[in-house]
Design a protein around this nucleic acid. Structure first.
Lengths: 165, 165
DNA sequence: TGAAGATTGTTGCAGGTGAAATCAATTGAC
DNA sequence: GTCAATTGATTTCACCTGCAACAATCTTCA
């Protein structure tokens, strides 16, 4: 019972029950729903929305910190910020103590977009959660944490075993 | 308590607790872990793996059916199949009754890749689930189903309200 | 001081993606 | 039977992405 059968044919793999696949489909569905919404209402894409949300929360940050907080690649942040500057939603202020970086803030127009977008985004998120039973809601938090953490560990582990072992 | 406060500033939105964001980070983490694994072991990408998995399960399908089953855009399927043909993992057989489509199957080499890949993929999936408590595992299935279903509904709902209402 | 190395952010490039156009084959209406 | 509409699959195009190279600016340490 503990060891899995190594014969390929005897181990059914059903894509529709395969967790990584299901997580992808779910995330994609949710993302696309929200992306269509952001786009149709404010003409911004997801990376831009993440920057706006981060600056809405922290008011003043460097691009590096935005990337760390929203887990976005630095080039993604750079391009999202550039696009938001063009739309006059974000402004840049030099950091006199370190001229490599700038402080970024929402403009008043940016704050307005944030204030309008936030209630709907939260409503969407809450509606998702509300479709779960109280018990499931309670599990959700831990499930997300655990799976994210575990997948990091497994990736390294599997690669090492197969490549070196 | 039931109605959310509509004033933007008074509704905190923390990206790190925002469900759509967290689902994305999780799916991305899991995907990248697996993608690195598929790639390093067999030189195939995720869309290709999905095609292989689907054909491993159903043996003989058209491109359209593969797309429906794996929820992939038809162009994605088309390109994944083309790539798998080049690698001699998939072969194409004309459907004499409808020459627009072809039946696709794994070659013997493709079956071998499937047989080798499946145990590890399942082990990865099982290890993810095993990091959860029995109770959380029990919730997981329903949570995924519910959230996927609900996000479909919400998308339409929100767009209709905002665009037309 | 100043030269090597690190860090922040931007850009060129190559690869992947979906929408729309297109091609090939089939079906339906007359 | 024939032509328009439909369907399955591919290709074109424009866009987004991450890697790698780069520029600008600090930091380190001899």
């Amino acid at each position: 019972m503990n060891r899995q059968d190594q014969k390929g044919g005897s181990v059914p793999l059903e894509l529709e029950n395969f967790l990584p696949y299901r997580l992808n489909v779910l995330a994609e569905t949710v993302s696309q729903s929200l992306a269509r919404f952001y786009e149709s209402r404010f003409g911004i894409a997801i990376p831009e929305w993440r920057v706006v949300a981060t600056l809405g929360q922290y008011a003043r940050m460097t691009a590096k910190d935005i990337g760390a907080h929203s887990r976005m690649h630095k080039t993604k942040v750079s391009r999202a910020v550039a696009s938001l500057e063009n739309k006059n939603l974000v402004k840049r202020q030099p950091n006199i103590e370190d001229m490599r970086e700038s402080f970024l803030e929402l403009t008043s127009k940016g704050k307005k977009v944030y204030a309008e977008l936030t209630p709907d985004a939260l409503a969407f998120s809450r509606a998702l959660v509300a479709s779960l039973s109280p018990e499931e809601q309670k599990s959700l938090e831990r499930i997300l944490e655990r799976l994210t953490e575990t997948s990091f560990q497994l990736a390294d582990q599997m690669l090492q075993e197969k490549e070196k072992g």
